[in-house]
Design a protein around this nucleic acid. Structure first.
Lengths: 191, 191
DNA sequence: GTCTATACTAGGATAGAC
DNA sequence: GTCTATCCTAGTATAGAC
């Protein structure tokens, strides 16, 4: 019953664990499940001496870095609003695989998840909302309503992913994501 | 170390377990945790012979019945739209304790939760969205956009509760819930 | 750097006394 | 209807061989 002898790179390993954590949550990912990476128990402890907590911390760092680079950064580029929103939305679709993958923030903020993990997730989410509000303001929206609109957009994205999970059907995500982008582009222009 | 000898009524017991399940999720509620109801392990198995699954099924039935009576029914009453939305929104605020409590649907649709539970939750959520769409249509909205608007509202509610969990702060819920109600009342009248 | 073997803990569940 | 005692399994973690 020999397992894959080739050692996957650390980055690839974390990417696999990331998929597991966001699907199953912190409690749901057992060491047994994590062995589906092809590594045995002890090998996992070799790579993550702190065990499950250590894995979660690495996964969160990986995911948050990706989100900052691909979702948040485009919002702050010096371009017209429609382009910023389009670029960011494209990354969001990729991040959630058009609704097929759930959100690590939703999965790892349940009670039972360790504090360092929760804190970095919260910080990244706050930065995402702030960047979206900034994008709206820099492109002509009233500062007063921008934060509310940005929070509404993020709520809708997170909520759509919950509906997808409940219905086991990605329709809610695919229909909402377009509407959200359209609404964001229209903020401040007559509604 | 004697525990409360007085037997709480079954309804009260289920209400306590409901709070535990929606906070902790299916995996998160251990038999140990459920003993905080004041009952010992074996007493819980007496009331719920099917163990944890049995508890979850009872809790879901309880919560879905409440939602149907207090959130969905008012949407279908023969009244002006503003009154339907206001009554339903009031119940939603109560259901989630103004953002302090999370949603059972979000908590119990994670992988690991048993199928009968997931199915009833999905059915109730679908009925909620359908009732909201019906309310909009009966009060003058275009049928074409009503389902999208109803799905948007539910996404926003569910998502706001995720933000609350992430930030450990109810602001996202309290600010969004009013905006959602206002948007629903305005659907079809110039935006 | 990965494995086998092992230890320990917590969770789920049942038997049977009261 | 509740308790004590017990069992079994799954999950976390470590030691040490290769």
């Amino acid at each position: 019953m020999a397992l894959k002898p080739v050692s996957p790179s650390r980055e690839a390993l974390i990417a696999e664990l990331y998929e597991m954590f966001r699907t199953l949550g912190f409690d749901g990912l057992s060491i047994g499940v994590s062995m589906r990476t092809g590594l045995g128990k002890s090998s996992l402890y070799y790579h993550f001496p702190g065990g499950k907590d250590d894995m979660a911390i690495s996964v969160v760092a990986f995911a948050c870095a990706w989100l900052r680079a691909n979702v948040i950064a485009p919002l702050l580029a010096d371009r017209p609003r429609a382009e910023r929103i389009a670029a960011s939305t494209r990354a969001v679709r990729e991040l959630f695989d058009d609704g097929r993958s759930s959100c690590l923030i939703a999965s790892l903020t349940m009670p039972g998840t360790r504090v360092p993990v929760r804190d970095e997730l919260a910080r990244t989410l706050a930065d995402w909302i702030a960047a979206l509000a900034t994008a709206l303001i820099e492109t002509g929206a009233e500062p007063s309503g921008a934060h509310l609109a940005a929070t509404a957009a993020l709520s809708r994205i997170e909520g759509a992913l919950i509906l997808v999970r409940a219905f086991r059907n990605t329709d809610a995500f695919t229909t909402q994501i377009d509407a959200i982008a359209a609404d964001l582009i229209g903020v401040g222009s007559g509604n």
